[in-house]
Simulated assay, not measured.
Amino acid sequence: MLPVIQDFTYHRVPVADGVTLNAAVGGSGPAIILLHGFPQTHLMWRHVAADLATDHTVICPDLRGYGDSDKPAETGPDTYSKRTMAADLVALARALGHERFALAGHDRGALVAFRAGLDHPDTITHLACLDVLPTLDMWDVMRGASAAVGFHLYLMAQPPGLPEQMISAAPDAFFGHFLDQWVADPAALPAEIREIYLAASRAAVPSIVADYRASAGIDVEHDSADRARGSRLRMPVTVIQQDWGAALGYDAAALWQAWTDDLRHHTTTAGHFMAEEAPAEIVQRLRELLAL
């Protein structure tokens, strides 16, 4: 399998501050942007994108700092804030001719999607977030022994230097751990795809760490300010998650409901990499959202 989404056209699109994003584009019709998570690239959407492209313009970028997109040096907290990454998407869509678009994100991409929905409510028509909680809520529920499952969040939250050095010493072991532990159906990540993800992550350690560091700092500040203002997502929202709430003792749907009045919350039996493990299920949920 080639490291591309078949029948999609690839673009390199300048977005902001000299940053260029790699984006695969296919289909025609209303636009939807699909955002990948950690430790992956846009290729995680290869099955879902092909289906949606039958009646939508589907845009699958690598986030800044990931895959074949630019990886600017971390010069401050804003370099990899979700606000900055959300602005990248608006610039990307406009460069491709779309003033408004639907947005679906998985994992890290879902956090960017959430921020885009709050910051650009007149631009995002529909919002889907896969297997995350909003950043502020995530830190609130991560406590006690159960927080051990998120050890990487704490590691990469540390000041520059130590986390990059530790991860760079054994990148395949580090990133491979998550690919192996978070998948319920290993066949969904064939060897060639797994190697693409490992190679991409291996080449992006500083920017991946910077992305996570922002989530322990400036992203919390932005979410806290929105919560204090009573900001809410104004578009239809779909959330698809593993049942982490039951496992860790919180009500995931209630946490999401605090951010929106128009929520569809679903749990799945698929593993974390649900767009690859259960693409038909994810397509169904996205199409239900897009029909609203």
Rank of each mutant, 00 (worst) to 15 (best):
A169M: 02
L155C: 09
Q242H: 13
Y154Q: 14
A173K: 00
H152E: 03
L153N: 15
P160W: 05
P163C: 07
D219G: 05
L179E: 07
A216N: 10
L179S: 08
G161M: 13
E192Q: 10
R202I: 06
Q181N: 13
A169K: 01
E195L: 08
V205I: 04
A203C: 03
E221Y: 05
S207V: 06
M156Q: 14
E195M: 06
A187S: 14
S201V: 09
A204M: 08
A200D: 08
P160T: 15
Y154A: 15
A170T: 15
P160I: 06
R227K: 11
A214R: 05
L233S: 12
A203K: 01
G245P: 04
I196E: 15
M235V: 11
L155N: 04
G217Q: 12
Y197A: 05
M156C: 12
P159I: 15
L198D: 03
S224E: 13
T238Q: 09
M235C: 12
A191F: 07
R202Q: 05
V149H: 10
A184M: 02
M156D: 09
V237C: 11
W244T: 11
A203P: 07
R227V: 12
P186F: 03
V239I: 04
I193M: 13
A170D: 07
E195A: 10
P160E: 09
A169D: 03
I218R: 07
A148D: 14
A228T: 13
L189G: 10
D243E: 04
R234G: 10
R194H: 09
A228D: 10
I196D: 13
L162A: 15
A203R: 01
P171C: 00
D226G: 10
A247R: 06
M235H: 05
P190R: 00
S201N: 00
P190L: 02
I208Q: 00
V220F: 11
D172F: 00
V239Y: 02
F174D: 07
A191L: 06
G161C: 15
I196N: 14
P186A: 06
A147T: 15
I240H: 04
A173N: 03
Q181W: 11
F175E: 01
H177R: 06
A228E: 11
Q181V: 12
D243L: 02
D226P: 08
R234N: 12
F175T: 06
P186S: 07
F151Y: 15
Q181L: 12
A246S: 05
G230H: 09
I208Y: 00
S215Y: 01
L198G: 01
A148K: 14
D243Y: 00
D185E: 11
S215V: 00
A199Y: 05
S201Y: 01
A169C: 07
F174M: 02
A247Q: 07
V205E: 04
H177N: 09
L198K: 03
P206Y: 04
V205W: 02
Q158P: 10
D223Y: 00
D219V: 01
A214M: 12
P236L: 02
A246F: 07
I167A: 02
M166F: 09
Y212K: 13
F151D: 13
V149F: 10
A148P: 10
A170G: 08
D211E: 08
S168G: 07
M156G: 11
G217W: 04
Q242E: 15
A173T: 04
G230L: 04
A228G: 10
Q158V: 14
L198C: 05
I167K: 06
G161H: 14
H152N: 06
Q242V: 13
G217T: 15
G217S: 13
A191W: 04
